[in-house]
């Protein structure tokens, strides 16, 4: 059941935000309300899975065959940028409130380290198609999970009496530290 191990480790043990520090920018920026957190998580999932499949296909069918592996970074990031544009158009058309609430962070998914990371890992870890899909879904699930938990905590945090220097982002970092500590306890799962 290696796929299951891959899935669980990507969601909990090597969680993309709390363990690998990827996707922190939206983590700090979008996570003030649970609804926008879930919306962001959904958008990232769509982009991550779509971009992973596209980059996987392009790498194995084109770059590898033509010995152009060094072009991977340029090609991947352009594919991701295009996918994000596509996602933006779709959300703007079908879910306008979400489009408004995500604001600038929607196009910023392009610079979300997590998306590029997954695309690169799929290649460097020599995943096959199924493993790629599982890894992309698991990583975005882990991202969404942490984003959602964090936003729930932050809704309360904003009302708490925080010391002045810590108000806003620093105290959020402390919360992230505690969450990372909690998730690291899951390390023995697989």
């Amino acid at each position: 059941m290696e796929l299951l191990a891959l899935f669980i480790s990507a969601v909990f043990i090597n969680n993309v935000i709390l363990s690998r520090f990827l996707g922190i920018c939206p983590f700090m920026g979008v996570s003030r309300k649970t609804s926008s957190a879930l919306g962001m998580g959904g958008a990232v999932t769509f982009v991550m899975v779509g971009a992973s499949l596209s980059t996987f296909a392009i790498y194995h069918l084109v770059l590898d065959k033509m010995d152009l592996q060094f072009m991977d970074l340029i090609v991947f990031i352009l594919v991701i940028a295009s996918f994000v544009q596509l996602t933006e158009l779709i959300i703007k058309r079908f879910l306008p409130p979400l489009y408004r609430s995500l604001g600038i962070f929607l196009p910023l998914i392009t610079t979300n380290c997590a998306v590029l990371f997954v695309a690169l890992q799929n290649i460097s870890q020599r995943f096959n198609l199924v493993e790629t899909i599982v890894f992309a879904i698991a990583t975005s699930a882990g991202f969404t999970l942490v984003l959602f938990l964090f936003s729930a905590i932050r809704e309360r945090l904003d009302l708490a009496d925080t010391p002045l220097p810590f108000k806003g982002n620093p105290i959020a970092m402390i919360v992230a530290a505690l969450m990372a500590l909690a998730f690291s306890g899951l390390a023995g799962l697989v």
Binding site: F21, P165, P170, A177, A180
Partner: peptide, 22 residues
């Protein structure tokens, strides 16, 4: 060395910078 320590150190430094700014 762990993620937790990274977040905490960052938070402390961010708070210090905020103090300086204020």
């Amino acid at each position: 060395n762990q993620p937790t320590g990274a977040f905490i150190t960052f938070a402390m430094l961010a708070a210090l910078f905020e103090v300086y700014k204020q």
